[in-house]
Design a protein around this nucleic acid. Structure first.
Lengths: 142, 142
DNA sequence: ATCATAAAGTTGTATTTACAACTTTTTTGC
DNA sequence: GCAAAAAAGTTGTAAATACAACTTTATGAT
């Protein structure tokens, strides 16, 4: 009985409701699927997401990547440093980022395996889960 | 024209579809909100999620935390090590984990701020986003 | 053109995370 | 009870992440 009076908040809250906890769990589950398919190419989920942006966005710089991916600028900087070291990306003469020839070849090779990961995760999500993720994403990024 | 023939996958895929990218962005946005409310207590989102489990699960060990949170056992071990160092948790005589008195006091103090974070994120999600997260979570964890 | 300000990028520090390999503890078959 | 096997826990290593503080680059006002 003492405990109940001393820590009322602990006794009345429900950790299963935690939105942060839910999204973290979902994130880890999805990340594990993609990691499994990508690790053979020695590229991480996060690095691939940056490669995606650089592949598709004209005149791309670190700030742009930061905005598109909701990543802190220092995080972008360190991931860019690794992609530069692996010669997957390079700076253009105008200080923008672009894929190297090796980067394009890697991405072209990786995409079918990314699609395999997408197929695997879609099977788990089913239409309901996929639609839910779209709704969630839209709500958070608008 | 040369590019189109050389890297067909790059030209035809749509990175905006990426399920991993979407969930990563959602995760970062939500994490930022919770971090903002929790940092004054010198506790991280991940640590709090572990404290939640230890607070509510009887006879809790690292394996159990790993299963509930979908965390790799080595990750749990390192987070547990920090919580032990901060004297927020302790081992029972039976090698299970429990909150210390300080841990209970901390959690009791933090919960209202966790609720503030929940309120803030619910306002962004609206009912549609909150329901979507529940649907997504259910689909991934069942 | 120059200097002040803002924006972008970088680096120090610490936590989170996972894989691999290892050690310790527990369980099980005899 | 004891040895083998399984489970749980630990540690080495490396990437991802963010905050704070800093440097470099770009912008603007005069």
């Amino acid at each position: 009985m003492k405990e109940l009076k001393t820590y009322p908040n602990i006794n009345h809250f429900n950790p299963s409701d935690c939105i942060s906890g839910k999204i973290m769990r979902c994130n880890r589950i999805v990340a594990n699927v993609f990691r499994k398919h990508l690790m053979q190419f020695n590229i991480t989920n996060s690095q691939l997401s940056i490669v995606f942006v650089i592949a598709k966005v004209e005149n791309c710089n670190q700030k742009k990547i930061s905005e598109v991916l909701y990543l802190e600028k220092s995080t972008v900087n360190r991931n860019i440093t690794r992609l530069l070291a692996h010669k997957i990306i390079t700076y253009t003469d105008r200080k923008n980022l672009m894929l190297t020839t090796e980067g394009k070849q890697l991405l072209n090779t990786v995409i079918p395996f990314w699609e395999k990961a997408m197929t695997e995760i879609r099977a788990i999500l089913e239409d309901e889960g996929a639609n839910a993720l779209n709704a969630l994403h839209k709500q958070l990024t608008h």
